[in-house]
Design a protein around this nucleic acid. Structure first.
Length: 208
DNA sequence: TTGAGGATTCTC
DNA sequence: AGAATCCTCAAA
């Protein structure tokens, strides 16, 4: 399998991608199940996903896809299991796993990650991070630590066609994740579509 | 540790 | 105009 030789074979041959059908569901169903999965790059950088948010297309005023397809959000309307990368605040990138069926415009924002491997490479990309917990405790930080920019928009997280994947090492999601409203939005502020691992050091905005 | 405010550029 | 954010600084 190509994803193994490209992404995980050399250092973690037992890590497995999630099937395409995992992503072909409502993002509020997928999101909590992405907790404790691994975001992995072909150079060995890897981290455990500890915080996510769901964005649900035409039913969700806070989603980039709410008003239909544009040049920016085109990837969200494509095949599930691909990476949707967006740019915001003039300097930050955000990373999502596309969910739902083609045309729905749904996704799960990857908000925070616990660095596991390739931490020195992450530090090189995030010189301002003082502690390990500053490396990827936020969507912009996570993207920067993993070197995710516009170039990776549309990458397939199932086949790892461009050297990035979401893999499982067998750790299940938390039984009872913390659920609450999403961060940094001005519409649909009450949708309880943010989930994170309870009491986890690497989650963003620990105070509410 | 907390809160306020600036940075910086793409998108619609 | 506003953005699915981060960083610095000041005050406590």
């Amino acid at each position: 399998m190509r994803y193994r030789s490209r992404v995980s074979d050399a250092f973690a041959p037992d890590w497995r991608p999630l099937p395409r059908e995992f992503y072909r569901r409502h993002p509020a169903e997928v999101a909590p199940e992405l907790l404790n999965k691994l975001l992995v790059r072909s150079d060995g950088r890897a981290g455990r996903i500890v915080e996510v948010e769901a964005y649900a297309g035409s039913e969700d005023p806070a989603a980039h896809s709410f008003r239909g397809p544009t040049a920016r959000n085109a990837t969200m309307f494509g095949e599930p299991g691909h990476l949707y990368v967006y740019f915001t605040y003039g300097m930050h990138w955000g990373s999502n796993a596309v969910c739902g069926d083609v045309g729905e415009g749904a996704g799960v924002l990857l908000r925070a990650m616990e660095p596991l491997q390739g931490i020195e490479a992450m530090r090189a990309l995030r010189p301002k991070a003082r502690r390990d917990r500053d490396l990827a405790s936020g969507p912009g930080k996570l993207s920067q630590a993993m070197g995710i920019t516009r170039e990776l928009d549309g990458a397939d997280l199932v086949t790892a066609d461009r050297g990035i994947a979401i893999l499982s090492d067998g750790m299940p999601p938390p039984r009872r994740p913390v659920v609450g409203p999403r961060v940094g939005i001005s519409k649909a502020v009450d949708f309880p579509w943010r989930w994170h691992v309870p009491d986890h050091l690497h989650v963003s905005v620990r105070k509410r």
